[in-house]
């Protein structure tokens, strides 16, 4: 019964994705990495030492599992509760059996479908423009990272959206800037709690990147092998965030702030 209800939420969320504004966002996110890769390629076409596999890997990592996944899930997952509260449809959904649980799960799956389709398409388009003979290894690595980053970021933004429904977008931007972009770069215990740190480590471990002239400095920003440990942590992190969001949405009295005149 839950699966059926989740399917119904997934269906109407997917229908909503067919509006002009959301299609435009999908197209922009999908084309953006290819546009950047194309510009880099043009800019480096006449230089003596064009970028090798390593820089192209870094570009694709920064553009797809980081930028497209993060921005896409931010746009879709963060306002899941606030959009329904503002549209006054929260009550409509919440008074159904399993109401809030299925709403969150259905919207989470819809977010994954929308962002993953965009991220994978953008990876394929961008990879097609990379001037390397063997781009398959890079694509494989980035694809695996994308498959991990989308669920993790979607769960993270979903949790922020349920914790702060009134200012969800502002809080999510602040969180991303402070934790995912700044704290994740601090070589201390705290950075291990960010999605960014795990993805960066897996990128380093899976793509066999050279450590450069100062390996110790580089190692301060990434974790240690084995890679599977980081995958397990990331998957666990995703599950915990998702369960926390579900717990909050079940227990929280969202309608209290909307008390009308009765």
């Amino acid at each position: 019964m839950i699966a059926r209800s989740v399917g119904a939420v997934f269906w109407f969320e997917s229908r909503r994705a067919l509006t002009a504004s959301r299609i435009v966002w999908w197209v922009v996110l999908t084309l953006f990495p290819a546009l950047i890769v194309g510009m880099i390629r043009i800019a480096t076409s006449n230089i003596r030492n064009p970028p090798g596999p390593e820089p192209w890997s870094v570009f694709l990592f920064a553009l797809v599992p980081m930028l497209v996944s993060m921005l896409g899930t931010f746009l879709w997952a963060t306002p899941v509760v606030s959009a329904e509260l503002e549209g006054k449809s929260w009550v409509y959904l919440a008074v159904r059996p399993h109401g809030t649980t299925v709403v969150l799960l259905g919207k989470y799956l819809a977010t994954l479908a929308w962002v993953l389709s965009s991220a994978i398409a953008s990876l394929m388009l961008a990879a097609a423009l990379v001037p390397l003979d063997d781009v398959g290894h890079i694509v494989g690595t980035i694809l695996r990272l994308t498959l991990l980053s989308c669920p993790a970021y979607a769960a993270l933004y979903l949790l922020l959206g349920t914790l702060f429904p009134k200012r969800s977008m502002v809080v999510a931007v602040a969180y991303t800037l402070i934790f995912e972009l700044v704290v994740s770069m601090i070589p201390a215990l705290i950075n291990t709690f960010t999605v960014q740190f795990r993805l960066r480590t897996l990128f380093y471990l899976w793509s066999d990147l050279p450590l450069g002239s100062d390996p110790n400095a580089m190692l301060a920003f990434v974790g240690e092998p084995p890679a599977w440990e980081h995958v397990v942590v990331l998957v666990t992190f995703t599950m915990v965030l998702l369960l926390a969001a579900l717990g909050i949405v079940r227990e929280r009295e969202f309608s209290a702030s909307e008390e009308g005149n009765g």
Binding site: G7, F12, R15, W90, Y92, G260
Partner: peptide, 24 residues
Amino acid sequence: PEDDCYLSGLSGVESVQVSAQLSR
């Protein structure tokens, strides 16, 4: 509910259908 609460983008029959689907 007293307030308008519908899922935008759906037709009337689809809205009611979704209500039924959410109820098993």
